[in-house]
Simulated assay, not measured.
Amino acid sequence: MSFDLTFECVLDLRCEVAESPVYDERRNCLFFVDIGRSTLHRADLSGANHVEWRLEGGACSLGLARSGRLVLAQRDGVVLFDPESGAIARQIAAIEPERPDTRLNDGKVGPEGAFWVGTMHEVATDRRPIASLYRLTQTGAVERKVENIVCSNGLAWSADGAVLFHSDSRGPWIDRWQFDPATGELSGRRRLVNLDEATGRPDGAATDVDGNYWSAGVSAGVLNRFSPEGRLIKAHPFPVPAPTMPCFAGPDRKTLFVTSLRPADSAKESRAGGIFVARSPVAGAVVHRFDDRLL
């Protein structure tokens, strides 16, 4: 399907690194984080009723929980956050707390109800493949699933839950795995595509009901839409230089939100770091919830 997207800035927040937008269908609102300012945000889909929480331990990515709370990845641990009280309800697990050179990055809830989150080597230069992708189970157990990553990113599942997409922003590559939605087991790893700065290093991502993978090309100012087999269907131009992650929202899941970051030379574009929205003719895959009944 060939189509164009028209983006508008719905929240001109000028975030340092806005990331991890998640649509909460119960509240009909959007949650997202600003990693650079250690803040968690909530807003209506219109951009109204914006609320911001600053968190001492950082805010790197998030997912929805069955209880209505949020599962939130901080710098080196995962917590449950209650948006009704505006406070952390409890700590769930620590991940790589002994490593000052890594932090948690992209995270999402899988079809089996576990929270998947990766780390990244957080240094200015000489980034090395010392990061990993983890699975946090419903009991709080932490399982390392993939190793030898520089910057874990791009988590998204196919609509039927049978495929997991995952990227390394500094690889830069996107892989796909066969995924068992009952057990969370991975198999059959395959390289979907290798990328570069010009085509767009892969940042956050989402999938649609047709099986396509939408990847924020953070280095190229585009939203890349790939087929399930890795063919670039279209590079959708983005209004600001560095989109970070797409998210399908709304009752029909055809409202596409995309977060962005604010580069050092952001004076060239005042809306950099804002939250953008467009209408999509194709719906996004269903968002899953973390099973926190045992916590």
Rank of each mutant, 00 (worst) to 15 (best):
M1F: 14
D4T: 05
L5W: 13
L5T: 14
L5V: 11
T6A: 02
T6S: 14
L11P: 04
D12V: 01
R14I: 01
E19V: 09
S20I: 04
P21C: 02
P21A: 01
V33D: 07
D34S: 02
G36N: 08
S38P: 08
R42L: 13
A43G: 01
A48P: 10
A48K: 15
V51S: 11
E52P: 07
E52Y: 09
R54M: 11
L55T: 05
L62P: 06
L62G: 13
A65E: 05
G68S: 07
R69A: 00
L70R: 08
A73D: 03
R75M: 06
R75W: 09
L80I: 01
F81V: 02
D82S: 09
D82M: 06
S85D: 12
S85T: 14
A89E: 15
A89T: 00
A89V: 07
R90L: 10
A94I: 10
T102L: 09
R103I: 14
D106E: 11
V109H: 07
V109E: 00
P111R: 03
A114F: 02
F115M: 07
M120D: 00
H121P: 01
V123W: 12
T125R: 15
P129M: 05
P129A: 10
I130L: 10
A131V: 10
T137R: 12
A141P: 06
E143M: 12
E143R: 03
C151V: 15
C151T: 14
G154A: 15
L155R: 09
A156R: 12
W157T: 03
W157Q: 00
W157Y: 02
S158M: 12
A159C: 14
D160S: 03
A162E: 13
V163S: 11
V163T: 11
F165E: 01
D168I: 07
G171I: 01
G171K: 05
P172A: 12
W173D: 13
W173R: 04
W173M: 05
D175E: 12
D180S: 11
E185H: 10
G188M: 14
R191S: 04
L192W: 03
T199R: 15
V209L: 03
N212D: 14
N212F: 05
S215E: 13
V218I: 11
A220V: 05
A220D: 01
G221T: 01
F226E: 06
R231E: 15
L232V: 08
P239E: 08
P239V: 00
P243S: 04
T244M: 11
P246K: 00
F248R: 04
G250E: 08
G250S: 11
R253P: 00
R253D: 00
F257S: 13
S260Y: 11
D265I: 11
A272K: 08
G273C: 07
G273P: 03
A283R: 05
V287E: 15
D291G: 11
